[in-house]
Amino acid sequence: MAQIDKTKKDPSGGPKKVSIDVGDGAAIPSREDVGLFTAWRVAFFGAIACILYLAFFKPDPYVEILKFLPDGIYVTFKVTVLSIVFALAIGLFTGLGRISKNRFINGAASLYVEVIRGIPLLVQLFYIYYALSKFVNVPDMASAVIAMAVCYGAYMGEIFRAGIQSIPKGQAEAARSLGMTPAQSMFHVILPQAVKTILPPVGNEFVALLKDSSLVSILAVSDLLRRGREYASESFNYFEAYTVIALVYLVITLFLSKLIGIMEEKIRAE
């Protein structure tokens, strides 16, 4: 998950320097880091080669396992994409709340971030699905998406906050001095510029969320991991099932990381 480190304000009064360090960065190779770049290729093509090798030379049970998984991959993507969309919306509001001058809104947003970041995602999932069922019955898929979105929304909020604060104060002053309202200034001037800072860490959150989505398998959501478990408990081929699951996750994650790495390079080049 992303860790945001906002360095102190530049004493010259210039723009605040913000660096967003990402804990999962090791999975995202850049061309300068030759060692890691090679490692990415070895891991990615190695994983694909392994899957192909197993499917061709040991079709029983590997082909059967592979046939079992596409439904799960679909569900994993569905949970991930829905969660990220909601997390982005929550993150935007949280980020805006965290920089709000209104003490109540600011306090509420900060409290949300602190509370959510302090509770493990697995516990949040259990809480929404099992604990809250005492009052309301939330369907599996909805619980999964709510828990993931609420959890990641807190992290996204910090990314949005850092991105917005990375834009020099003079930009907002220029917008306001032209008669724009705070909202107009935010949406026409500040946010469009902050997107450049915000996009790369959001991409990393996307990958992290995809991996964490495996946690929803503890609910009755048939994601990739749960499909593997279902197969394994029927066939007792635990080793084979989990090997394939790990390889499939690896391929998807490395592929997405690569995409994000390319996107990041493009943004930097602009």
């Binding site: 003079g170 930009q171 220029a174 001095s177 032209l178 107009q184 026409h188 001037v189």
Partner: peptide
């Protein structure tokens, strides 16, 4: 009340023309 700043504060994500039209459209 128009204001001109020491650091210019032009909007870098907008073209020169868009810099001039933004507030006219949004505010005026």
């Amino acid at each position: 009340v128009g204001m001109v700043f020491q650091q210019f504060n032009v909007f870098p994500h907008k073209t020169v023309l868009e810099n001039l039209t933004l507030a006219q459209v949004v505010v005026r």
